[in-house]
Design a protein around this nucleic acid. Structure first.
Length: 405
DNA sequence: CTTCCACAGGAATAGGGGGTCC
DNA sequence: GGACCCCCTATTCCTGTGGAAG
């Protein structure tokens, strides 16, 4: 047992690492020079530049799919801009609306950034908003608010109205709320990878929010290669990653829609695999292995963090290799609940859970019409069944199910 | 051309858990 | 302590619907 560990640790400590600077491969690393995004950087810079003189820049929207560099570019420009700003009361706030989760948390986070203590629950949204605005007016703060994945504030039908209301208030702050002559303002930089995002926005919010729009196209495979080369130079010891490996990674990750984040991630994991074996070079098999690992980790993480009923549902789905209708999945689910001693939820709820699993990318659930046989969803696993079973075997409650078979 | 299946998915509601404010 | 707030899960009730079977 302990020789095992010694073995691993020895390899790492004695063998010289193939990494020179691992940090370069982190998701939130901002490189010193950014490739293939000059136009976007320029445009954002120009739009925001009035703030250097204390004037309000117009609002801004950044569009593009995942891994096209939106976040990185936004942060890059803001960091640079910060160097030019002497005014204590000019504040840049970056936050990710999806990670914060709810509108309330987004607001309280904003509050925190501008030096306001907002309890993490208990207040009404309008109260939080009022406090933020009052504080901004009092201190004369100039706020540039970068809202990453801003679509999360309005793409939830249940909360769409509230999301729109709050965004509207924020865009209106300068003219309505702040009439007392202080020169405080709010500029919003929205980032979205959902191109349908606009449909969720009410007209009144749209017009003020989208005064400037900047598109981030997917990277081409060639561009991804260049990006990878750039990172390799900084991150790895010389000669540990050759061009073939770079081409391979670029091909794997770029073919779909030019996702640079995925490419860099793949590079990092490949490197880690090679390092773990004490090698000084990345081989092709490392990349393949890394590809598998990334997928596996994602699935495992997604499933193990699921609530118990959702686990039961996905397990039910997993028993039908060719997809099944909601009704049959529900019957199977009830069966499983009985075996586990669980009170089954209603079908309505299961239907919603299936949709949630769909959103997580674990299943597909397109609606199908079977005429006389009604209308349903054809629910099918998109990941390997063995991964589901494997993960659930380690689950405290699901273990019972497998032991009894 | 009509029927009618097997659900989808919206709306209203409840309740429990987190809290603040006065 | 009471009024009130947000968040999330879940229930009940409901109306809507594409197309094979008749």
């Amino acid at each position: 047992m302990s020789e095992f560990l010694d073995d691993i640790f020895n390899k790492i400590s004695s063998g010289k690492s193939i990494f020179k600077n691992r940090e370069v491969l982190n998701i939130d690393y901002i490189p010193k020079r950014i490739l293939f995004r000059e136009d976007q950087i320029k445009k954002i810079g120009e739009t925001l530049s009035p703030i250097i003189k204390g004037a309000k820049p117009s609002n801004l929207l950044l569009y593009g799919k995942t891994g096209t560099g939106k976040t990185m570019v936004a942060r890059y420009v803001i960091n640079k801009l910060n160097d030019y700003i002497k005014d204590q009361n000019t504040i840049f706030v970056y936050l990710n609306c999806r990670i914060d989760g709810t509108l309330y948390r987004v607001l309280s986070e904003i509050g925190e950034y501008i030096g306001l203590k907002i309890p993490f629950t208990g207040l009404s949204l309008s109260e939080v908003e009022k406090r933020i605005f009052n504080h901004l007016v009092d201190k004369g703060i100039k706020l540039v608010l970068v809202l990453d994945e801003i679509d999360f504030l309005v793409n939830n039908p249940a909360k769409r109205d509230i999301g729109n209301d709050v965004l509207y208030d924020f865009t209106r702050y300068d003219s309505i709320y702040n009439k007392s002559g202080s020169n405080s303002f709010i500029t919003i930089v929205g980032i979205s990878n959902d191109l349908k995002f606009m449909e969720y926005l009410e007209g009144r919010v749209q017009s003020s929010l989208r005064s400037e729009e900047i598109l981030f196209p997917p990277y081409t495979v060639e561009e991804i290669k260049e990006i990878l080369k750039d990172r390799v130079k900084e991150a790895f010891v010389e000669n540990s990653v050759n061009d073939e490996i770079i081409n391979l990674i670029a091909a794997y990750s770029g073919s779909e829609h030019g996702d640079a984040r995925r490419a860099v991630d793949l590079l990092r994991v490949s490197g880690e695999l090679a390092e773990r074996e004490g090698r000084d070079k990345i081989y092709e098999k490392d990349v393949q292995e890394a590809l598998k690992n990334i997928e596996k980790d994602k699935v495992q993480e997604a499933i193990s963090s699921l609530p118990i009923h959702e686990k039961a549902v996905i397990f039910s789905i997993a028993t039908f290799p060719n997809g099944e209708t909601t009704g049959h999945v529900y019957l199977k689910y009830q069966e499983i609940c009985n075996q586990l001693g669980l009170q089954p939820l209603t079908q309505r709820r299961i239907s919603a859970i299936i949709n949630e699993l769909d959103m997580l990318g674990l299943v597909t659930a397109p609606i199908i019409n079977r005429g006389r046989h009604g209308r349903s969803k054809k629910v099918q696993l998109t990941v390997d069944k063995n991964q589901i079973v494997g993960t659930l075997k380690n689950d405290e409650i699901f273990k019972l199910l497998f032991n009894s078979i």
